[in-house]
Design a protein around this nucleic acid. Structure first.
Lengths: 250, 250
DNA sequence: CAACGATTATTTGTACGATAAATGGCGGTC
DNA sequence: GACCGCCATTTATCGTACAAATAATCGTTG
């Protein structure tokens, strides 16, 4: 008699999260990001998590190791797992940022993200203008073309993301790459709120084209300014369209 | 007969890495960062890792879950674990950056890091000047005082790091925080190469003090300029002192 | 012979149980 | 009252068994 306990699914709301330990990691990670388990808190021990979710200790441990790797937790024998202070969290991790998005007020988050973009994207674009290769120019051009081919706002998100990722890559500094996920989240979150109102935001295409041209012609200063202009436009869209504060769920 | 196999230590060179699965994660992670396992490569399966290191499959799996959480790997049944493309790696993760440092040419890395700092820190300082709280000013002041109290270059590293972390915190944008580990690495790496020559680099203290004053007086523009000046000085130290290329180890 | 479908083999995923190691707390001793 | 050793709790590691996924293989059939 070994494997007869029918699995109690972790939660109906958690859709296609493949493996069990990833589902557990997601559940615990969300709990940390949304404040259910504040920094400094001692989490339930592994056996308790297992009982909570109807999973084995093995699966729980693997989930905890994942969170460990993202800087959310530290575990020690006899103590348990303690939530790390926020400054240790890897906010630029894809999952952590996603959980953060799920937990935080949408507008606040978008403003934080845009602030980051204003800090690093102009500089990144200037670097790209100096150092981009021809292949990188081609990648940016392809993304720009993709934006032009989009028939509605939703279709424009993917090439828009691709445009900015290509721009980051063209800066040829690997440490900049992880910031790509911030841009991705920004554009996706923004789409959820704004694009439903702007059926097809054609205005952004010339703004992107200006960035592209500056990079192609290797004009760092022009690239920097074009990005600043583009970001200012984005800021305007956000402050104009996004509701001031999401009403609290009951 | 269960627990009689005496542990074969993973490697004598790996010092105080506490738990076995962390040692394994370190060994595999270094192998990935230094190119032994290139992106796209299929890694040895879990049983093989276990045999290689004299560890159980459980420990190997927990190590792999850690690396998974850092974006270095993806695992799928019947396939194995494949190294992800570099653009998925979380370079801003503490461990990943450490492995990267171990694998990469020191000067190249320092230049990449300084480039990042030139992009981020002026903007962060400007934000800090706008929004810092009194407590945050105090934290920066304490760090500055610590720098002044240092009796040699080594003692100055910690408060110098603290100064920049405090500055980042004062910007009041959580997404900036992960960037702190880059600064930390920069200053530590730089100490290894430069400070042995500059017994006590007093020159940096007034440069830091200028940043502090601008933040205290809430002058964003002055803060930005002071940081630019400070970073320019750091750049000069690097290009002057750091050897062009580390001689290859035999 | 080509195309397709079932079978097989390999690898990760999950479970369970036992033991080791670390460590905070308790109680006893001097 | 201070110090020291025992105890309880929790993670760490091990081993084994089986489930699930899927690439590769092989056989069948049109």
């Amino acid at each position: 008699m070994v494997h007869r306990k029918p699995r109690t699914p972790i939660s109906r709301s958690r859709k296609r999260a493949s493996s069990l330990h990833l589902q557990l990691a997601g559940a615990i990670g969300e709990g940390i990001l949304n404040g259910t388990y504040a920094p400094g808190t001692l989490l339930p021990n592994e056996a308790e998590w297992g009982a909570m979710f109807g999973a084995s200790r093995t699966a729980v441990r693997e989930a905890i190791k994942t969170l460990n790797g993202k800087g959310l937790l530290v575990s020690r024998p006899k103590i348990g797992s303690r939530v790390e202070p926020r400054e240790r969290w890897n906010f630029l991790d894809r999952d952590v940022l996603a959980w953060h998005c799920a937990a935080m007020d949408r507008k606040q988050l978008l403003l934080s993200i845009q602030e980051m973009r204003r800090i690093f994207e102009p500089g990144a674009a200037a670097l790209a203008a100096e150092r981009r290769t021809e292949a990188q120019v081609a990648r940016i051009a392809a993304a720009l073309e993709g934006m032009g081919a989009a028939r509605n706002a939703e279709e424009m998100v993917a090439p828009d993301v691709e445009f900015h990722l290509a721009l980051l890559e063209a800066a040829n500094n690997e440490l900049l790459i992880p910031f790509g996920i911030i841009i991705e989240q920004a554009l996706r979150q923004m789409f959820d709120y704004t694009s439903r109102h702007n059926p097809r935001p054609l205005g952004v295409i010339p703004l992107h084209a200006a960035v592209f041209e500056a990079v192609r012609k290797q004009r760092p200063d022009a690239a920097r300014k074009a990005v600043v202009t583009l970001l200012r436009d984005t800021d305007n869209v956000i402050t104009a369209v996004v509701p001031a504060r999401r009403p609290r769920a009951p």
